[in-house]
Each structure stands twice: as structure tokens, then as C-alpha cells.
Design a protein around this nucleic acid. Sequence first.
DNA 1: GTGTGACTTTGAGTCCGTC
DNA 2: TGACGGACTCAAAGTCACA
Lengths: 73, 73
Amino acid sequence: MQQDPLKSFGLRLVQLRKSKGLSQEKLALESGIARSYLSGVERGQRNIALLNIHKLADTLGIPASSLLELPDD
Amino acid sequence: MQQDPLKSFGLRLVQLRKSKGLSQEKLALESGIARSYLSGVERGQRNIALLNIHKLADTLGIPASSLLELPDD
DNA sequence: GTGTGACTTTGAGTCCGTC
DNA sequence: TGACGGACTCAAAGTCACA
């Protein structure tokens, strides 16, 4: 049963960001996204659009599709 | 050399939709998205957000991540 | 059955800040 | 280092008529 896609995405993003040893601030800065917005995305409160998904994926050095995969629990 | 993520997503969506034998009209209706909006997405003119990506993926019966993979061209 | 332009409303995304 | 809020701006979302 698929839960909230936004929460799922946020969790996955946190996991990938930490695995690269980045802070929210650094990831936000390097991908050109507002820090407070990124915080909201990671908490599943924001409905991020495709271009920003790609920006984050690029910064993390992974394909965008892998950002949409389900987080490990 | 496919670089525009929106165009890439649109192409991929068209391919998947046709492979399921659906019209834009039917896909739009079943996923609860406006047809003219869907048309814009398929042509890479709309920056679709995560929740709508999931709606389309659900209707197509595929994981959202597979919608973000690159189209075969 | 699809492309497109014009339009309105809602929320995506920014920037300031505090805890 | 990250959660969270207020106050903004502009684009995503959605609708329509017509090609």
C-alpha cells in the first residue's frame, strides 16, 4: 500500500543526502534551491516539481528516477 | 542528446501511454488530470509536480520512478 | 483525438527571521 | 544543523474555446 508520495520522497532524499555527507544547507546551495524550502520537501510538506527534482538528482550525482524509488525503512 | 528533462519526461510518457493503448483523453480522465494540461506535459511545456507524476504512474500501473527513466528514441 | 493560447486560482519556491 | 513561521512572487494546476 503506497502511502504519501511526498513523505516517501522526502525520506528518500534525506537518506541519499546523508549518504553523500551533505548538510541541507550545502545541498540547497549547490542545487540552487532555497534552504527552508528544501527542509519542507524533506519533511514531506511540499509538492516539488520535476525541474527541481532533477536539480537535486544532479547535485547528488544520481539519475532522477532513482530519487523516486522507495526509501529503505 | 536529450537534455531537457521536461521534453524527456513527455516523450517517455507518450511511449508508456501508447504502450497501454490509451488516448490522452482516457489517461487524463482516469488519472483526474485535465486533458489539455496532459497535452502540455507530453510536449514538454509544463513542469509537472510530484503528486501529478504519481497520479499518472498509478493510472499506467507502473512505479513513479520508471516514469522518470529516459525514453527510448 | 490532439495542439494551443488565454485565462484564473492555488500553491511552488524565495527570503527574511526565530527557536 | 535543522524545524518552522510570515510575507512575499511567480509558476504549477486547472479550465475553456477553438484550430
